[in-house]
Design a protein around this nucleic acid. Structure first.
Lengths: 206, 206
DNA sequence: GATATTTTGTACTGTTTCGTACAGAATTAA
DNA sequence: TTAATTCTGTACGAAACAGTACAAAATATC
């Protein structure tokens, strides 16, 4: 609440948010297991003890990084999906915005922190939990948006369309890391959005 | 060619194929970076020097594991896709067979060695190369099979369907690792196959 | 039986990594 | 000025790890 009241001892000089942004970048370009605390120390500019004090051990740093990454997605990409208007446009814009996150450049792609790095380390229960939560979240957001656009569709048709959309996003991560350019994936996103709308428009509801 | 001719010194006792199968299992459940040579030594039953002599260092073991895994896919799942007859059936059976590989049980899923673990370590050039090759391979197989079933379809319609299928498969890996059951993914595979055929049948060729 | 040849694991070195104890720095309160 | 408090990094110990030298084991050849 009040932050004018100076605390007692030596004032903190660490920018935890900036450090966490660097942590996210390192984890999503190198994965979880391949990253050492020394590297994290280097990219954040914080000493190893400072990292422990601010964020705990490597696992808790990674989990927190996933949360931060998720917030970024919720802030910048999810609104595009939830935009009223044409579903195909909303889906295309959502995919496009996600690719802006996955790519730093048209060529160089740190990819998705969750879908790109979590599967390798899902033997860790808390990591698997975040992965499963993320997938469910995407499925659920897709389902809500499609249901809004096509209220008459049956649950089966909806599920099918939902999974096509989610799977497209999940696969983007692997494709980006494989060296595909952003433009190529933009095209795949647009194809996917178009196909989904074709399906939802064309099929008879049971 | 001739193998009756006994070689000169101490006869080898190592079963390289069995060892490599164990290597594949370890890598795809724990990822690349998290695996140590001591663990590889333990699961294969070979000493660390024997591992070096047989397969080289960790990277070359991993690359070879990817090749072995790929052969397994080509032998058991790809034929299902290439089966003549209904495309929807072929796709469904292909997905099903891939899930048999991804899952050891209905619940426990080591997942896909390539799509599950390679993206985390794609900064290594040779790993990225295998990942990109695998994706291209899947895209190409899908395209060939769909073109055979729907020769009249235009390239754009085909591309769209191809990517839906490939993305389904790629996403299976993440979904399996996230804790989804095999039955759930079988359902998603069937949905995807049905949607693809609906699209290819329904759309007019330009 | 002795020697050459090939395979194999024990044991060693140097490096990397994690985690923390502890001392020094920077500030407020007395 | 001194003491209390909070923040920070240097420096240490312990464990894990990669890679290899070397000796022992097991066979063929002489």
């Amino acid at each position: 609440m009040r932050e004018l009241k100076r605390k007692r001892g030596r004032p903190p000089t660490i920018d935890a948010d900036a450090a966490m942004r660097a942590v996210v970048e390192l984890f999503r370009s190198k994965g979880y297991a391949a990253v050492s605390l020394d590297e994290l120390s280097e990219v954040t500019g914080l000493s190893r003890p400072s990292l422990y004090r601010s964020f705990g051990n490597k696992l808790s740093m990674y989990l927190r990084a996933i949360d931060v990454f998720g917030e970024q997605v919720v802030e910048s990409a999810v609104p595009k999906l939830q935009d009223d208007g044409d579903l195909e446009v909303a889906l295309t814009n959502f995919f496009s915005e996600m690719l802006n996150i996955y790519y730093r450049d048209d060529d160089i792609a740190p990819g998705c922190l969750v879908f790109g790095t979590a599967p390798s380390n899902a033997d860790e229960a808390e990591i698997q939990s975040r992965l499963s939560f993320s997938i469910e979240q995407v499925d659920q957001l897709m389902r809500a948006r499609m249901q809004k656009a096509f209220p008459a569709r049956g649950s089966a048709q909806l599920d099918s369309a939902v999974h096509i959309a989610s799977n497209t996003l999940i696969a983007f991560s692997a494709r980006a890391k494989s060296g595909a350019t952003k433009s190529e994936l933009l095209e795949i996103g647009a194809q996917s959005a178009h196909a989904i709308c074709t399906l939802l428009q064309g099929e008879r509801a049971d």
